[in-house]
């Protein structure tokens, strides 16, 4: 993995709102073909980082670079063709069928009326197939379960056909099999389509078992990044979530709850 080309990277990035940084000194590399998990306690700035990487909010300091170009200086269309994002929560779609929702992802590529060409329809089919949601295509989004809805939202971002995919807590509110399913889908997207995929999560075990890389946001110091094995061996994973009631067991790489 180390030898792969970095698609998205940050230099001396500080993220936050206004001029107050939540997290400083973020040096991050997202290589093509790899799945990265973003971990950290609540309120440490995971969502803020994702929004900044996606160009939705300006950095407090430093910059985000995509193939050598500054993400925050790109035109709206160029950015939309480079970075797709799935934000947290279930959006209020109204009455929309799955196919139409996924088709929205083609917007950066369609004409001003949003008319879809055969190529756009093929991209929608492909996206639905890759998340395993082809059978849902004519369903109303409102009638989908949380797990199905999350797959559909991932398919929407996939249809956007971008080299970079960012997701904010895509496994929240899902049961265990669905969480595993979503992360497996993200893994196959990253590996199969040589995309750089980053998602934030609180599922340590899923991150350790299924991700290529980890980005740990630590309070009081800059984030740490490396492979899950390195995170365990160096003790970083243990420290990142260390607190009253949680203890890390480096022998098998799991966290235990202590009463």
């Amino acid at each position: 993995m180390k030898t792969m080309k970095s698609l998205l990277h940050t230099g001396n990035l500080s993220v936050g709102y206004g001029r107050k940084p939540l997290m400083r000194n973020i040096e991050l590399d997202l290589p093509a073909g790899s799945l990265t998990a973003l971990l950290g306690i609540n309120g440490i700035g995971k969502s803020t980082l994702i929004r900044t990487l996606a160009g939705l909010q300006p950095p407090v300091e430093g910059g985000v670079w995509l193939d050598g170009r500054n993400v925050h200086a790109l035109s709206a269309t160029d950015r939309a063709r480079s970075i797709a994002v799935v934000l947290t929560g279930r959006p209020p779609t109204g009455i929309l069928d799955v196919e139409t929702l996924v088709g929205l992802g083609r917007q950066p590529w369609t004409d001003r009326w949003g008319r879809s060409t055969p190529k756009d329809r093929a991209a929608v089919d492909d996206a639905l197939e890759r998340v395993g949601a082809l059978h849902l295509r004519h369903r109303q989004v409102a009638t989908c379960s949380d797990g199905e809805c999350q797959k559909v939202l991932v398919a929407r971002a996939l249809a956007q056909a971008t080299p970079v995919l960012l997701l904010d807590e895509p496994t929240a509110f899902l049961d265990l099999p669905n969480r595993a399913e979503i992360v497996r889908v993200l893994r196959s997207i990253a590996h199969g389509g040589s995309k750089a995929v980053l998602f934030s999560t609180h599922d340590l075990q899923l991150a350790v078992d299924l991700c290529d890389r980890m980005l740990l946001m630590r309070s009081g110091e800059g984030p740490w990044q490396g492979t899950p094995q390195e995170a365990i061996a160096s003790g970083e994973l243990g420290r990142a979530f260390h607190g009253s009631g949680v203890r890390f067991d480096p022998s098998n790489g799991t966290h235990r709850f202590v009463p």
């Binding site: 709206a76 269309t77 109204g94 929309l96």
Partner: peptide
């Protein structure tokens, strides 16, 4: 009538619309 495309994007929220290139 000329606004149908960005209006569609806004169905899934302002931030998602922005991420798809809508001002």
């Amino acid at each position: 009538l000329t606004m149908v495309k960005p209006l569609n994007a806004m169905l899934i929220g302002d931030d998602h619309a922005r991420s798809m290139g809508v001002d």
